[in-house]
Amino acid sequence: MSGWFRVVVQWVRGGLVAGLVAAGVVVQGASPGVAADAGQAEADLAYHGAALMSAGRVDVRFVPRNHGPADVSDATVRLTWSAPLADRQELPAGCARSGERVLLCRTGALAAGDVGQAVGLRVWLREAPTEVLMEFDTVWGGGAVDRNRDNDRQRVLVLDTGDTYYF
């Protein structure tokens, strides 16, 4: 019997229902896509696009998609970079800087089973590295829960070759 299962069995035998509830909260907290309220709307967000880098400039274009089943009134995607961003950036409407290496971008409304508006941005890195790791993930899904977090998280290694990298 595994260690965590043994603890749960001991809690049940000891009548510590509160311990089980607390364990459930901890498990749910470890899975940000699982809602505590089973009646909460569910949407499955995903992002696909392309990136290319040349001399410290990274051009990114991505399209959000909602696989449903519920509509999403708006969502926010976080783009995290392995290299620091230059101090000055010209970002499109709906995108804002959130730290030395982080940008946040709104997707707008996403109907179930539909694709959203493409988001295109140009980012300048503080120095001109030969590669950068770009990570995407949803930080807000309009109040809907996303039980399939695998397709709304992307990790893309972009090399300074001028080649387009698709994700």
Score class of each variant (00 low, 15 high):
E90V: 11
P69T: 13
E90Y: 12
D87N: 09
A93Q: 12
T76L: 12
L79M: 13
F62M: 06
D44G: 08
V58N: 05
R61V: 08
A46Q: 05
A41L: 14
C95K: 03
A50Q: 03
Y47H: 05
S82H: 06
A86P: 05
E42I: 10
S82Q: 07
E42W: 07
P69W: 15
T80Q: 15
N66K: 08
H48S: 09
L79V: 13
Q89H: 04
A43E: 05
D71I: 09
H67M: 09
V63F: 06
A46D: 03
M53P: 00
S98W: 09
S98D: 12
V72L: 07
V60A: 05
A55F: 09
D74V: 02
R57K: 02
R88Q: 15
E100L: 13
E100S: 11
V63M: 06
G94L: 04
A93M: 09
G68C: 06
G56A: 01
A96V: 13
A86Y: 14
A93Y: 13
P64A: 07
G94F: 00
V58Q: 09
Q89S: 02
S73P: 10
A96H: 12
R57A: 00
L91M: 07
Y47E: 01
R61C: 06
D74I: 01
R65H: 08
E42F: 06
G68E: 06
P92G: 05
L45V: 03
A43R: 11
A86E: 10
F62G: 01
V72A: 06
P64S: 07
D74R: 04
A93P: 07
R88D: 14
F62H: 04
N66D: 00
Q89W: 08
P64Q: 08
R97V: 03
N66R: 07
G99A: 08
L52H: 05
H67Q: 09
A50W: 02
D44S: 11
A50D: 03
L85V: 13
A55N: 09
P84S: 11
D59H: 06
A75N: 12
H48D: 04
V60I: 15
A93L: 11
S98K: 12
R57V: 03
D71H: 10
A46M: 07
H48V: 08
S54P: 03
S73C: 09
L45H: 02
T76H: 10
D74H: 02
R61N: 05
S73T: 14
A46V: 08
L52G: 00
R88L: 15
L45W: 04
L52K: 09
D71N: 10
L45N: 00
A75F: 04
A75D: 09
A51Q: 00
V72C: 06
